[in-house]
Simulated assay, not measured.
Amino acid sequence: MIKKKITMPLMAIAASSLLILGACGTTDSSSTDKNTDTSTKTTQTTKETTTKKDEKALLDWSYSGSTGPSDWGSIKPAYKISDTGKKQSPINIETKDAKADKTKASVAYKYQPTMFKVTRKDQTVQAVAQTAKGRADSKITVANKEYTLKEINIHTPSEHQLDGKKYDAELQLKHVSADNKTLIISVFVKEGDKNQAIGDMTSIIASSENGKTTTMKQAVSTLGLIPTDDKAFAYDGSLTTPATTEGVSWVVYEKPITMSKQQLSDLTKQLGDNNRPVQKLNDRQVSSN
């Protein structure tokens, strides 16, 4: 900015200042205070709104509007299976129709306390398991095939339903086998006692910045995330986010675990309603143990 030199005589400046002060004295102070208060509130509201709007979307899909679930299949060719697939997830599990088959729905666990790196992208969160020196990875065995725990994804409310019922949240523990097959363990969450097993993951998600990765300070007691009641359902499905790739084995536990009201609030603060609607079962058979 170019500063102009002031050449007005000092006496003239003083006189002008007195006139200005006199004019200010005639203003209604209560009106000024009200205007100031209103302006401050407006500024704060605008700032909050701007902050939310300034968070640039990282994904080309979302959970609402023109890029919501009903339009995923038309966003780009790689997502087309969202519309055309016959084995899409999530589903509503009708418990009375499940066929007993312990081979598919029974899981043997070799879980270890695990550290995770947490990344939020828009309304999704991906907690990636970290390998620890001197400690084995968390693994499971289903139908004689071994899978390694790779990540945890969280949805609020739950994506799967049991007899038409949704839960407050759903943890999806993604595992991959040596031959690159995917199996996801799904655990429902309802409000109740604080969940100690999940460590500081919920508070990290609450304060997460879009696109940023944070390393947890506490290890997740992974086995503590699995319900003590082992009743579960199994079926063949897909990923629940684009590209909703099929060929995914699902094991969905019947009994939920709990999280405190604060923990659930921490999740919904950033994730909101990030659940894909249930998909048609078509000719698939749901198994139970």
Score class of each variant (00 low, 15 high):
167 Y>H: 14
205 I>V: 15
100 A>G: 05
20 I>L: 13
82 S>F: 07
255 K>F: 01
76 K>C: 03
283 D>Q: 13
143 A>V: 10
88 Q>R: 11
13 I>L: 09
84 T>E: 06
29 S>E: 15
36 T>N: 11
77 P>N: 15
26 T>C: 08
243 A>Y: 06
19 L>C: 07
154 I>V: 14
269 K>C: 00
242 P>V: 10
158 S>W: 03
150 K>E: 15
2 I>W: 12
224 G>K: 07
183 L>F: 05
265 S>Q: 13
9 P>S: 10
156 T>P: 09
169 A>D: 06
286 V>N: 02
55 E>K: 10
113 P>V: 06
182 T>Y: 07
277 P>G: 05
30 S>T: 11
265 S>D: 15
12 A>Y: 14
145 K>T: 15
47 K>P: 05
70 S>I: 01
87 K>N: 14
35 N>F: 10
224 G>W: 04
157 P>G: 02
244 T>M: 08
238 S>G: 03
254 E>C: 02
197 A>P: 09
63 Y>F: 15
21 L>R: 12
81 I>F: 01
161 Q>P: 04
177 S>H: 12
147 Y>D: 09
201 M>T: 08
33 D>M: 12
57 A>S: 09
256 P>L: 06
50 T>S: 12
168 D>M: 02
12 A>H: 14
47 K>F: 10
187 V>E: 07
73 G>N: 06
74 S>A: 11
277 P>K: 04
169 A>L: 04
77 P>I: 00
205 I>H: 05
